[in-house]
Design a protein around this nucleic acid. Structure first.
Lengths: 339, 339
DNA sequence: ACACGGAATACAAACGTTTGTATTTCTGCT
DNA sequence: AGCAGAAATACAAACGTTTGTATTCCGTGT
């Protein structure tokens, strides 16, 4: 106990230099594998450094090189596995370029987002990756950013990587219609309806098939269990009742299915339900969800590549992102009447 | 287009000094709100700094102050909402002490964990927070760490914050037994059985009630759908069949329920299933899961507090963490025979 | 008028690297 | 042996802050 190891001084390059009997500058060069230092010296220095437990001091390096080798990632909601996958794609690509990703969570709050950006600016990151930014675009423009920013899924931004945000939803709708559904409800999320590409896709496909848009068939989900119950009630009160529902994400879809089952409506025999996002549980839930998977990993990789182009001053070529993928499982089937 | 804003030079304290007609040292002091500078100067400097868009350069500060104001958090699996909540508790507490949390994801891989630690060491973090460390304890000991480390849920570590890892499981088991179950199966995770507190709790409660331990009733879940199906098959092949199953986490419980339903076994009427973790979906799934919630947010807060004590050299007092909480929902009920 | 003391500010060194340039040390060639 | 040229290394300045100490400036009391 009480082993006071704390006031342990950091091993610096000078310590190594002294111990190796060379100049600090030779040590750096040796450690960097520079050609300018003799093989023998290089290995000797490396060995001494390892043995002394040398850890480079990023702050000092950042100071003189004027770049930190860090990329700041601003995550709105760590809880959402969606972003976790995105982050992993980024890390994978960043590693190839000797860059590291540091993450800051914002809880989806605008103030926290600003703070996160500020932290990263102080950290002198080489780039900023901002998925689903909360702050207005104007903020990112004004922020006469000394650092390149790439947004994810914000098509109006100066630099961005996005996959087609309507495509997956269109496929879901087409899938439902192909099954024979004509009366299809939609569950929307917290975003204003006008800015919701899923909603746009919903209306667009209806229109393409000459199906009338029914405002009564739009429901709003706020994340709570009560919300699901409420939607189920409203749904049951409708006549005619829709035969299918397209939910804006998997959680809302699963919540709805549960609320329906409690009311003796079974999915998909009485009503088809499709989700969006392909979260891990969507395949294991009962019934397994028909849903859409976005290529988040690839988007993550691509956004790092774009960031690199931007920081080299070259306009990144329009990124090619694989399309969202429709995943048909058991929560959708033909409507009762059509069987 | 092509607005070349990139080679924008950083505004430094010297720039402000020049513009304000004072010495750089006065600027720092003004910015820190030191008493040594005249009110008028202080406000003038602050104003100029704001107007010039000054952002402090952490690297420089870190260099001279020899502390970064950063805490490194090594997250094994960002995908797990469990850790997201933990991280938020940490952020909340850290903010109170002017500290910031930076996160690095390790995918649960040992090599990545080492790298993460190394990055943080380079970053000169003031502390390390390591939940569910993968690397052997010896690594953290040897790593004659120049920085305090607090582990989460690793009771054998020098400094750690953990909640009682058996308590919740004991309550689950007692709950099942109180319902009348005597034949209870257990689904274990990837960890070796000996190191699994849930398994220990399982056996301990059985023993306390003079119920014989049946090795045949232990199943292993690896995260896949097939694994769930396989467990269901094995379960059905048993005779007598257990009347309840305690699953080591919610995902495995939900997977099992699904596999059972496909085989016309309904939960809880034919078989009770309890989970662990209280993930968001556990309340919304069908049937809603009986499970255990760990106070991750509080653990997060406490671990930052402990880190602070450790870094001040004082042995942190044994942290008081609220106990895990049993959440009884619909996936458990009395066994058929007992009704 | 003078020294005194405190308030306000300026000076300068330091933190740990990197890097351009100068210097030394080799090597091979005549 | 002498020398050019390359190879290896040393020197020194710089990056943007902070902080201990020195300096200047003022008002006050005698």
């Amino acid at each position: 106990m009480a082993d006071q190891e704390r006031p342990r001084k950091r091993v610096t390059i000078k310590d190594i230099a002294r111990s190796a009997g060379v100049d600090p500058s030779t040590v750096t060069r040796a450690l960097q594998g520079s050609e300018r230092v003799k093989d023998a010296t290089r290995t000797r220095v490396a060995q001494i450094a390892a043995q002394m437990g040398y850890v480079p001091h990023m702050a000092a390096r950042t100071l003189v090189k004027r770049r930190s080798g860090l990329i700041g990632l601003v995550i709105p909601d760590m809880t959402n596995p969606f972003f976790a996958t995105l982050a992993r794609g980024m890390e994978n690509e960043a590693a190839k370029h000797d860059l590291r990703i540091v993450i800051n969570d914002t809880l989806g709050e605008e103030a926290a987002e600003r703070e996160a950006i500020h932290l990263f600016l102080e950290l002198d990151v080489d780039g900023l990756l901002v998925p689903m930014a909360r702050c207005p675009q104007a903020y990112y423009d004004e922020l006469q950013s000394p650092v390149p920013v790439v947004h994810i899924n914000r098509p109006d931004a100066r630099h961005h990587v996005s996959c087609d945000r309507m495509q997956g939803s269109i496929e879901i709708m087409q899938h439902l219609i192909a099954l024979g559904h004509r009366a299809i409800g939609f569950i929307r999320g917290p975003a204003p309806p006008g800015q919701e590409p899923k909603m746009q896709a919903y209306r667009q496909v209806l229109e393409a098939h000459d199906i009338r848009y029914e405002p009564d068939w739009i429901f709003r989900f706020d994340g709570s269990t009560e919300s699901s119950a409420h939607i189920a009630e409203r749904l049951l009160a409708l006549s005619p009742m829709p035969t299918a529902v397209f939910a804006w994400n998997d959680v809302s879809a699963i919540g709805l299915i549960h609320a329906l089952r409690e009311r003796d409506i079974s999915v998909p025999s009485d009503l088809s339900v499709a989700g969006h996002d392909n979260i891990q549980l969507s395949g294991v839930v009962d019934p397994p969800l028909t849903t859409v998977a976005w290529p988040m990993y690839e988007i993550g990789q691509q956004s790092v590549r774009s960031l690199l182009s931007v920081s080299q001053g070259s306009e990144p070529r329009e990124p090619r992102i694989p399309a969202p993928r429709l995943i048909v499982r058991a929560s959708t089937s033909g409507p009762r009447a059509a069987r």
